[in-house]
Design a protein around this nucleic acid. Structure first.
Lengths: 160, 160
DNA sequence: GTATCAAGCGTTATATTATTACATTTCGGA
DNA sequence: TCCGAAATGTAATAATATAACGCTTGATAC
């Protein structure tokens, strides 16, 4: 399990790695990473935080890539279906996948102070949700696991 | 842990029990369960499924209890804050709490076929979200744990 | 009792998020 | 080169949610 988003890291490499993986993934699945889709993924990747569809649309509009809501929603839906991005239900917003290429069931840690979002790569079945589902005879198809609170950097510091 | 929602049960008793507990809880916390709030809770309790704010508002309007969105949102917000209801983020909708009076961290099982929602009463800290948060130094304040899929009754049957 | 204050409520308006529908274009394969 | 599927452009609208403001009510201090 690795949680990506709060710790400092080489973000430039993080972005280019992910773009490269997205290319590979789309090629492998015979999906077309068109200019708009690619640009939206870049915009999502720029920061480890969630982006609203209309935020994305504003960037696209500024760059002449589209002005109407469906442009943004289509690209975001594509990226989500392709596994390159996730939707954060608690924020009605989207974030680039931090574990592209790994089969994973994402869980998110959302900081209410700095709005950063970390994606934790976990497995589902032995979690509480998996147990509860098995006990109830429920067949899980998709999970939404999100925690809201304070990231390490935003917690009140006793020392220093 | 108990998951309430899919199994058949004495729903009339389930409703009246919950209303009684809500009364007690509000009295104990010095919160006012006004007619609109009470009625909204009854509406939520009528079925173990999520109800949109505007669905609730339509009922209130039909009963002369209010016609504008804030009427519904205020009552729903009150019930959520009071612990008598939960918001289902994946559906932008609300559901009555099935574990009133118990300190719990809810997790929901949402059937995409019949729209029923079961609430599983779990503890947080040893689940995968808790582990991930501890590992990342993240301080959790609120969790959203929702699974979408098929409830027992809606799964394709091999036998029978 | 009555002045005061906070909570609740009524109402208008508007903000935010998301989808439907349909015409047009692009792209790959027959 | 023609066809069909996928992608895109665009207008309109639906669905969800909040801001703002004034009035009413109910509890409390005096």
């Amino acid at each position: 399990m690795a949680t990506i988003g709060f710790e400092t890291h080489d973000h430039h490499a993080c972005v280019s790695d992910t773009m490269a993986k997205a290319e590979q993934r789309c090629a492998a699945l015979d999906l077309r990473l068109t200019p708009v889709r690619r640009r939206v993924l870049e915009l999502l990747l720029a920061e480890h935080r969630a982006h609203g569809a209309y935020d994305i649309l504003a960037h696209l509009a500024a760059e002449g890539l589209g002005t109407q809501p469906p442009v943004a929603y289509r690209a975001l839906d594509f990226l989500v279906k392709a596994g390159c991005a996730h939707r954060i239900e608690a924020l009605n917003a989207y974030i680039a996948c931090a574990h592209l290429g790994q089969d994973h069931t994402p869980a998110f840690l959302i900081c209410r102070s700095c709005q950063s979002v970390a994606e934790s790569d976990t497995t589902l079945t032995d979690g509480r949700l998996g147990k509860a589902a098995r006990a109830a005879g429920f067949q899980i198809e998709h999970t939404v696991v999100e925690a809201q609170g304070l990231c390490p950097a935003c917690q009140p510091q006793d020392t220093l």
